[in-house]
Design a binder for these strands. Sequence first.
DNA 1: CGCCGATGTGTACATCGTATACTCGCTCCC
DNA 2: GGGAGCGAGTATACGATGTACACATCGGCG
Lengths: 200, 200
Amino acid sequence: MAYGVYAAASASTAQRIQAAAGRLLDRRGAEAVTMRRVAEAVGITPMALYRHFANRAALLNALADAGFEELTERLGAARLPAAPERRLMKILDLFLDFALERPRLFELMFLTRRPGARQFPGDFRAGKSPTARFSAAALEEGMRQGAFRKDDVWEIVFATGAMLQGLVMLYLTGRFAVSEPEFRALCRRAIRRYLNGIRA
Amino acid sequence: MAYGVYAAASASTAQRIQAAAGRLLDRRGAEAVTMRRVAEAVGITPMALYRHFANRAALLNALADAGFEELTERLGAARLPAAPERRLMKILDLFLDFALERPRLFELMFLTRRPGARQFPGDFRAGKSPTARFSAAALEEGMRQGAFRKDDVWEIVFATGAMLQGLVMLYLTGRFAVSEPEFRALCRRAIRRYLNGIRA
DNA sequence: CGCCGATGTGTACATCGTATACTCGCTCCC
DNA sequence: GGGAGCGAGTATACGATGTACACATCGGCG
């Protein structure tokens, strides 16, 4: 269950806490997610939060985890084109949608040191990163079909992911004086060039 | 004058403050750079710092600026190969040297919202980013010589820079379970693939 | 009934950035 | 040479923040 749906009133206290924290995060950034503010939003004492989360870091961690779940859900629910390259570009679009809709959450997910973050290459090859799995599958199929040269699939997925993440972070931290559509187009061109580099 | 040299005792107070803050940053990260700790290291009152820096953000900003200066100096001082592609790879190496030697500073420079950060494309095309200028020059020459297809030089520089920055951040935040040499090799391969995508 | 674990409260403390008011000591100018 | 002014540093204080610790409440179960 993604916290993104902002659970209803009947939810457990832990869920209500996470939902309130998520709203604060989306609206005002991670620094604004203070124990006191979250507690006030839920209607309990700051210290009561510690019954449900070990500390502030754990609460933020839960938000990030929920973010990954939501992103995975979106990718899973989307109707992806069959052709590998078009599928890759569609995944790119979905990724950008998410990053631009929920920039603060994105920062939290991809930009902070987190305990338990997936590690390359082990966790990725083992399929523990759901978001990377989708790209890897498409890329693998492209190689099988002969569109792409045989190469290290996971390394390519990781590198393109890093590029995308880098571009988004630069965009979110104000390094792009271009409109959002232009930024999206730039991302597509950047990925396309990388793919050009591995064509058979 | 790069603050990295950690100015001698005869330096101005502002320089001594910046040096002390730089040491704290390198050793214990940006969160550890508190006004009180910096002041103690310098031997003055916390409030005295405000005679030299408007606030904590300005102090951190000065550290980042000095970092850019140092990186620029390093690039300028290095003997770069003449051949465009080899030159690009050398720049990559120097960039990685810097990032891996001073990871906390790197984070500060590339990972935080900063007032006055250069913006794409205007500031870059205008040559205001010294680090990007070196890559752009090499790439341009490669295009002139016919090794690379004619394309948007600055966009490519920016995208490859984003990729590198993304990879480094993933490495620094513990997403890589590989040795440093392996990480460096992976970066080289990633950039190489991108360059493959723009060969004539 | 007694009790116990889960949940929440109240109070308190250390740490942080920084506003405000002050005290010097030096230089400059008449 | 003697005050005016100023740059540098100090002292104190305030409001946030994370969270430790001791206590209250309450529902279910023996």
